[in-house]
Design a protein around this nucleic acid. Sequence first.
DNA 1: GGAAATCTACTCGGATACCGCGTGTCCGAGTTATGGTGG
DNA 2: CCACCATAACTCGGACACGCGGTATCCGAGTAGATTTCC
Lengths: 180, 180
Amino acid sequence: MAHLTASVEYGLHCLLGLVDAGEQPRSARDLAAFQGISPSFVAKIFPRLEKAGIVEAAEGVRGGYRLARAPETISVLELVDAIEGPKPLFECQEIRSRCALFDDGAPGWATRGVCSIHAVMLKAEKAMRDALASESLADIAGRLQQKAPPAFGMDTRTWFDRRIARRRSGSPAQGKDGTG
Amino acid sequence: MAHLTASVEYGLHCLLGLVDAGEQPRSARDLAAFQGISPSFVAKIFPRLEKAGIVEAAEGVRGGYRLARAPETISVLELVDAIEGPKPLFECQEIRSRCALFDDGAPGWATRGVCSIHAVMLKAEKAMRDALASESLADIAGRLQQKAPPAFGMDTRTWFDRRIARRRSGSPAQGKDGTG
DNA sequence: GGAAATCTACTCGGATACCGCGTGTCCGAGTTATGGTGG
DNA sequence: CCACCATAACTCGGACACGCGGTATCCGAGTAGATTTCC
């Protein structure tokens, strides 16, 4: 396990699949299938992104999610906070007030301000959060697009469109798809 | 829970109790009692610090631990790594290679280099580690000494010395200590 | 042929088990200071 | 009085339970579109 959990990883990957979707919503199931991860788990992540105002949910048979804002305005820090909640890097337990020299109550000088150890951790947390805030979803998507061949974007769109079109058209190629 | 666990907090607090100890070793039990935390748990943390070359263990009845190096040369990052081990902030699961567009094997352009999402997290982790590396144990101890009244350092030393002297002298004041 | 009702399947959304890591505790091996004994 | 030895308590060090958070899954409520039927 790590501080930035697998939920964040899943959420970010799926959001990358929404950047080039435009107005057409994409369902959590399709996004999960595209990334090759658990649809059930992805379905639990997206409601949090929706509550945070990062994606919009469209209901119905051709519903799904789409970005609520331009990807340039969505920082990675926002995504992390939306998915994991405000989880601190370090939880100070105020050990300083339990010193054996303080019989019952700790003196004022000991508990005033922030714990010296906690301060260091807060500084480290801020550095981490600043780094996450400096990157946007569009940055990652752009870097990915730069690595991928030109046809990849179109192939992705085609994949989702076929997936949507196949929904209720009678599944014309359910078993004879290009697996062999 | 948090990424920087309670073990780190306990270890750091106890190490602060070693900064002004000099050559005289202080036992894990005494350090834990001084901080008002679990002695058993502290006893599990210090062996890791010893393996990392941060403290030296002295065995025997008047043994204990003492700093192996000057506190100015011990960074908080070292302590975190020594106690928690090399635990990454983010564990990339290589989702990128499972894309549905890649039938069996992912193409080279997809898996070459570092995952775009992983890169952002590594950047954040580096920022966090740099912040932790910029602080030393002596920095924290100095800041604490600045907050505490002048007599605190001497009181601390007296507390540990009495604790050691009482060990095998027949426990002259076992039950009539200043609790009331 | 056109429009409305129905019906289906797909969507989101939350409530529910399983598992691993961290927390906390305990007990055993080893060692040094102590106390007594013998010279 | 001094040196040696046995004792004993304290030390470190690792092995053993408990609890919580994360992971993964399932099922239920609601809705847009396609189908069918009636006029």
